[in-house]
Nucleic acid binder design. Structure first.
Lengths: 200, 200
DNA sequence: CGCTATTGCGCAATCC
DNA sequence: AGGATTGCGCAATAGC
């Protein structure tokens, strides 16, 4: 409890590049989690964009919509402020009349164009959200496959490694045997020759 | 658009084991994603529970609270119904007076105890949520580390593999040389003896 | 039974 | 402009 996600209520959509203007975030509880560092680092040229089937649905029934309950120190309506938004009733300032004449303004004069009339219930909003949801699912599927692949690869490599090591042991022994034989031959003494000498 | 998350509004918290009482789910859009099969399969004895530091915070400013907008064909308050919930105002039936005397009822008579007074804004609700959020972050950190580890392991193994293969090539060549020498020795004819014969 | 751990999902910020 | 990523919180549920 005692949430306090206030942080950057300032800096509305004023700076083109918010850079890393963020810090703190009590996370409400006192556990002080924070994924912090480690920053993914997922490189690797994988992603063969194997967009296989991916047919029917599943359950995906839970829709969640709720939350709110937080304190949420709002912010203007179409404001940017990465933090909270919407004081309480879902689509905050519904007062933002559906009409959006910014359409007629020159590109440089209207809001960032991306977040102009994000009235939560506007058709465009839903369209964008839905598209993003699709993209997210796709991306996650891809990630899952990639991870699984990496895992399989690791297992295969380990297996192969063992085989290679066995082979090396084999070759080494064979080599020792031959060396021994050769050393015997060089010796002026006896020469009954060739002891074991495994196949090959 | 045209969401239709109605599904199981029936079967409130009536059956002890909802089993897999779920199906369909238009996903609103027509993309028909569905992660479907592939089912993780993350086995592997990893997870050395390396609960390292994990100190300060980062940004984590965005809190999101909103959404709602959907159609969400509600369902009772404390109802189970995996589907939507809360018609619109965050904590739906606030009428669920804070007082919860079910505390005095015999375990078998009160609601499943797990979801008794989940009134969205109750202290217990927030407490549970917060604890889960912590657990989720922890779990995800763990997963991230595990993935990264697997990746590193794969790279190391690949590197090692190359070395082993080189070694095998080396040993094989050496072996061939020795074999050649030996075959020469066996020949009754000339015997000017051993040609090259690399080091060792 | 109750609590943590996982997992799928949607949202929003960001990346590209 | 628009898809791809990613961190995050919620809820369902698997596990202990």
């Amino acid at each position: 409890m005692s949430d306090s996600r206030v942080s950057s209520v300032i800096q509305e959509w004023a700076s083109p590049f918010p850079g890393q203007a963020h810090t703190m975030h009590p996370v409400t509880s006192g556990q002080a989690e924070s994924t912090g560092q480690l920053a993914q680092m997922e490189m690797m040229p994988y992603g063969q964009s194997q967009l296989m089937m991916r047919e029917g649905g599943e359950d995906r029934v839970a829709e969640q919509m709720m939350g709110m309950s937080y304190l949420s120190y709002s912010s203007s309506c179409i404001g940017n402020a990465p933090s909270a938004a919407s004081t309480n009733h879902h689509h905050q300032s519904h007062g933002n009349n559906e009409q959006d004449f910014s359409h007629f303004l020159l590109p440089t004069l209207r809001a960032p164009l991306t977040k102009r009339s994000l009235s939560k219930d506007s058709a465009e909003y839903r369209l964008r959200r839905e598209r993003n949801n699709v993209a997210v699912r796709k991306s996650r599927d891809k990630a899952r496959r990639r991870i699984q692949l990496t895992q399989q690869r690791a297992m295969q490599l380990q297996e192969e490694n063992q085989k290679l090591q066995m082979r090396i042991g084999q070759l080494t022994q064979e080599l020792d045997t031959l060396k021994h034989i050769l050393s015997q031959r060089h010796m002026p003494g006896s020469e009954e020759g060739a002891a074991g000498e495994s196949r090959i």
